[in-house]
Amino acid sequence: MAKNQDIQIRDPFIYVDRKEGKYYMFGSTDKNIWGKGTGFDVWVGEDLENWEGPYPVFRPDTEFYSDENFWAPEVHYYKGSYYMFATFLRKDNGKRGTGILKSDSLMGPFLPHSETSVTPKDWFSLDGTLYIDKEGKPWMVFCHEWVEIGDGSICAVQLSEDLKEAIGEPVTLFSASQAPWPTSFEHRTRKSMKNYVTDGPFMYRAKNGELLMLWASFVDNIYAQGISRSVTGEITGEWKHDVETLYVDDGGHGMLFHDLNDELFLTLHSPNQTPNERPIFIPLEERNGMIRRKK
Score class of each variant (00 low, 15 high):
57 V>R: 00
58 F>Q: 01
59 R>Y: 12
60 P>D: 04
61 D>E: 11
64 F>W: 11
72 A>S: 10
72 A>N: 05
73 P>V: 03
74 E>K: 15
74 E>H: 15
77 Y>C: 11
78 Y>M: 13
80 G>F: 06
80 G>I: 10
80 G>R: 06
81 S>H: 11
83 Y>Q: 11
85 F>M: 08
89 L>W: 13
91 K>Y: 05
94 G>F: 09
94 G>D: 08
98 T>H: 03
101 L>V: 04
101 L>S: 08
101 L>Q: 05
103 S>C: 06
106 L>C: 08
106 L>T: 08
109 P>R: 02
109 P>M: 06
114 S>E: 08
116 T>V: 01
120 P>Q: 08
124 F>V: 08
125 S>F: 01
125 S>M: 01
126 L>N: 05
129 T>Q: 13
130 L>C: 14
132 I>F: 12
135 E>P: 01
135 E>G: 07
139 W>K: 05
140 M>P: 04
144 H>Y: 14
147 V>S: 06
153 S>W: 02
153 S>A: 14
153 S>K: 14
155 C>T: 02
159 L>N: 13
160 S>A: 12
162 D>R: 15
163 L>Y: 14
169 E>F: 07
169 E>C: 03
170 P>T: 15
170 P>G: 14
172 T>F: 05
172 T>K: 09
172 T>G: 03
173 L>D: 11
